[in-house]
Design a protein around this nucleic acid. Sequence first.
DNA 1: CAAAAGACGATATAACATAACATTCTACGC
DNA 2: GCGTAGAATGTTATGTTATATCGTCTTTTG
Lengths: 155, 155
Amino acid sequence: MSDHNHMHADPEAALARAERVCRERGARFTSQRRRVYELIVCAGEPVTAYELLHRMGGDGGHPAPPTVYRALDFLQAHGLVHRLASQSRFVACDHPETGAHGGVFLVCDRCGRALEWQDERVARAVARSAREAGFELGDEVLPEVEGTCGDCRRG
Amino acid sequence: MSDHNHMHADPEAALARAERVCRERGARFTSQRRRVYELIVCAGEPVTAYELLHRMGGDGGHPAPPTVYRALDFLQAHGLVHRLASQSRFVACDHPETGAHGGVFLVCDRCGRALEWQDERVARAVARSAREAGFELGDEVLPEVEGTCGDCRRG
DNA sequence: CAAAAGACGATATAACATAACATTCTACGC
DNA sequence: GCGTAGAATGTTATGTTATATCGTCTTTTG
């Protein structure tokens, strides 16, 4: 019923997977997009666009905002990252291969980390609600809820 | 199971109710807060903080941003309005008296309207997910999902 | 009435995001 | 290879959302 959730232990694997996903779709996983994705994966927690921006700065300085936002748009469109609206932050998706991302984001109000918790029950309940309300659900249906994670509660 | 949802047919009633809710808690429903709440209720759809700001302008001009944000913070804290993170907009809560707001926001990607759909199944499924994940849910647990409402689909 | 707490005004600035247009890169047919 | 069309990126500017800070006023309470 509920899949166990995990952080990206292996950024290499995530990158390889992303590359494969893009190739299969004929989408170009350019160096910018790769760089942004890598930074998100390695962050291990939700990061803002401007944090990414500043981390991209190599020698001369960092690129302009549109550069990052364009990469983020691409990565979102291909399901590689999600935008946490409640935080204006971005996280890597745990399972970019599957089209459906049914579940819920559990966002910790203390440490700020977000768990992408897969749960068919939530997905089904939401789908059912939407149907009853006459709504047709879109693709980006990853509800976010705020709470306190186990680690933070235990101290 | 699913409650029917309705727009605020009667702003007067909503204001009276808000006033009562505040009085019961010893919170001050000041004129600023009343004004902001009234504007949100009358809008009938999600509105941005700056839209409220501009609508508050009476004679000389509109107040400064902190004025609106402070009022919004208060109203949110007392469950009178919700912030739709995905839109950075604010909507009146349909049932401010009850502490729990279990359900889901169905946000139309065409007309922009948001339906606060009460559904115990969603609330339970989310609560269950949270428990399994070791999360303790906070108060602000109103997941938002994007889709197309019945009106917009039918043309 | 005095003190304390809460609310509000005002200024400035931080943080998040996109519009618009120029330039460079890449794939693809020839 | 070579030209070209479309995609991607660079660049500048600006729009939008939100908060920090500090001073003043108002309300509550003892």
